[in-house]
Structure formats: structure tokens, C-alpha cells
Design a protein around this nucleic acid. Structure first.
Length: 179
DNA sequence: CATTCGATCGGG
DNA sequence: CCGATCGAATGA
């Protein structure tokens, strides 16, 4: 009988490049507007590696917005993009070594902006722990996906030729979920 | 302060 | 291809 539905903190204290593919197939859980628990199956993630990663908010050092990335792993990092869309990330790695996994899509909802909108997730979750107490949490996969694909991250051309092409996006073999 | 710029999306 | 839309970052 499997009783360990939740990940240990140590799972997220690893490099985001390891955590991002390992989260594929796991359940993104939240309470909807009516207080009903919903679970979405994560199908696409991206890894933002560290201060060296020019595509990461952390590459320019600590700021008000990105300070959570420098904190302990296993906390949500939310920020708004293009003035409209909330982007959902989970902090990974050790303290003072900023990295995160970005949630790009689930089997049910494709696209990072549509994902948070459908979940009703926004800034109010910024800095909260990945825990049922926060009403936003991850649970281990029911079935681990077999063929994981990887390729360049989306929308990071400004990171330059090296970092924009790093294969830090991961998805199921049944296809990437592009917005 | 003033200006620029997005880890996007939906509509032509 | 392009405009929406606004908080945060950057620079004067």
C-alpha cells in the first residue's frame, strides 16, 4: 500500500534539470472556486538552472521579484508575464542557489498562462509551500510516463544563442503542449 | 520619475 | 503577424 503521496523536500533540493523531467506525470492539485479538489497531470515542464542561466530571472542577481528563487526549495514562485498571465514555478535546489521548475502544461490544459487561469492561481500563492495546507500541491504520479522528450525552452530567445537553445524543456512522448 | 520589456495568448 | 496589458527592471 503506497502511502507516500507527497514528495520529500529532498526531492526538490536537487538541480531543476533533474527535478523537471521527474515531475512529468505527477499531479498538480488545487482547490477550485467551489472548494473541490482538482488534480491535473503535468505533461510539460521547463528547468531554470541557476545564476548562470541567462534565461532565468536569477541571472541578473537578486531582485524583489525573484528573491524567492534564492530561498528554500519546495516553495511556489508566481510572477505575472505580459501584464496578463500568471506563471507558476516551484523553487528547487539549495538555498542561495536560485533555480526553479516552470510548469508549462498539463494533459488537461496547454500553456502556462491558461493553466494558472483555469486553476485560479495567482500572486496569492507566491511564496507558499508546496503543501495541501497551501491548497496548491504536487502528488506523485499514478503512472510514470515512459518516453520523455526534451528540447529548447519556449520564449527565451533573449537569453542568447547558448542558453536559449539548452534542452531544458521536457514533455511526454505523446507530444509537447504548445499554447 | 520615464521608459522599456517580457518564461503569453488569441485573433487576423 | 500583431496588439493587449501592467508589474518590475532599468536608467536618467
Amino acid at each position: 500500500m503506497e502511502t507516500h503521496f507527497w514528495f520529500d523536500d529532498s526531492f526538490f533540493e536537487r538541480p531543476s534539470i533533474e527535478v523537471a523531467p521527474d515531475l512529468l506525470g505527477s499531479q498538480l492539485c488545487f482547490w477550485d472556486r467551489r472548494g473541490v479538489i482538482r488534480k491535473l497531470t503535468i505533461s510539460e515542464t521547463e528547468a531554470y538552472h541557476g545564476s548562470d542561466d541567462l534565461a532565468s530571472h536569477a541571472s541578473k542577481g537578486r531582485t524583489l521579484r525573484n528573491s524567492l528563487m534564492f530561498g528554500p526549495a519546495n516553495h511556489w514562485y508566481l510572477y505575472i508575464c505580459y501584464g496578463v498571465h500568471w506563471m507558476l514555478n516551484l523553487v528547487t535546489g539549495p538555498i542561495d542557489q536560485p533555480s526553479a521548475v516552470f510548469f508549462r502544461g498539463t494533459l488537461e490544459v496547454s500553456g502556462p498562462g491558461k493553466l494558472t487561469k483555469s486553476m485560479g492561481v495567482n500572486k496569492q500563492f507566491n511564496g507558499l509551500m508546496n503543501s495541501p495546507v497551501s491548497k496548491l500541491w504536487l502528488e506523485k504520479p499514478v503512472a510514470i510516463p515512459k518516453e520523455i522528450q526534451r528540447g529548447p525552452r519556449i520564449g527565451v530567445d533573449s537569453a542568447g544563442p547558448i542558453w536559449s537553445k539548452k534542452p531544458y524543456r521536457f514533455w511526454f512522448s505523446n507530444g509537447p503542449t504548445l499554447g
